[in-house]
Design a binder for these strands. Structure first.
Length: 244
RNA sequence: CGAUGACCACGUC
């Protein structure tokens, strides 16, 4: 910012790259307020925004809990002939779920399809996460089915999210079905999924399974602090203080 | 360039 002021003082005129760079930096460090100010300044000197600038601002505002403002940028940018892409839609959809705006999430999810912007894995994952955190595992599973129908391959995160919710809902059979499906499809199981599976195993008192998921060499994923927290807590809850 | 999954944190009351 200091250099920016200095260059203006020295008579140099900032161009779109100058603004882009600064706006992106402010967005990255969570200063969407500063980013917006620069956006206004940029518009005032007659520089049209780029897709990249808007993408940064929409994301920063979404993360700052200012989804409504993000939506305004999203709508207004179309006047500058910048069309939203799957990335921007995903960012907004995720933010809607975080802000408890289920209706908006669905609206934008449907809207993007109507406008022929194909939802990406992240878009579907945002929907799955949002629905499952509301306890709507049935709907989440429908979205999971839909993505496969349209040829978007679920990734580790898609499975992880559903497995976690099924376990928390006590639907261990469903969770394990997905676990087996991951193996079948050759998906990489990572520490997050294993930690979830350990939680499920311990809840069902399948101590041997839980131990098996900690076998580093066999499964190729290093347990982390969250994993061990689960192991300890799960065993305590199961009444096995020694094992814990 | 950049978005999405477990615990915690954050946020709301």
């Amino acid at each position: 910012r200091m250099i920016f002021l200095e260059m203006k003082k020295g008579g140099l005129v900032p161009d779109v790259h100058t603004f882009s760079c600064l706006i992106e930096c402010f967005c990255k460090v969570g200063r969407s307020d500063e980013a917006c100010k620069l956006y206004v300044e940029m518009s005032e000197v007659g520089i049209r925004p780029t897709r990249r600038i808007l993408s940064s601002i929409i994301e920063a505002l979404s993360n700052a809990g200012q989804v409504d403002l993000a939506v305004r940028f999203f709508n207004e940018m179309q006047g500058d002939r910048i069309n939203p892409d799957a990335y921007m839609y995903s960012t907004l959809i995720y933010a809607f779920w975080s802000a408890d705006q289920e209706g908006q999430a669905w609206k934008f999810f449907n809207q993007m399809k109507e406008h022929n912007v194909s939802p990406s894995v992240a878009t579907y994952n945002a929907m799955i996460k949002g629905l499952s955190s509301l306890g709507q595992t049935g709907k989440a599973f429908k979205v999971f089915a839909e993505m496969q129908e349209v040829g978007v391959i679920p990734d580790t995160q898609s499975y992880s999210c559903l497995i976690d919710r099924f376990i928390k809902a006590g639907k261990l059979v469903d969770a394990w079905k997905l676990y087996l499906q991951m193996i079948e499809k050759g998906l990489q199981l990572d520490v997050v999924v294993y930690t979830e599976l350990i939680n499920g195993s311990l809840e069902a008192q399948w101590t041997d399974d839980a131990k098996q998921f900690l076998e580093v060499k066999k499964i190729g994923a290093l347990p982390n602090v969250v994993t061990y927290q689960s192991v300890v807590e799960g065993n305590v809850k199961a009444g096995d203080i020694i094992e814990a």
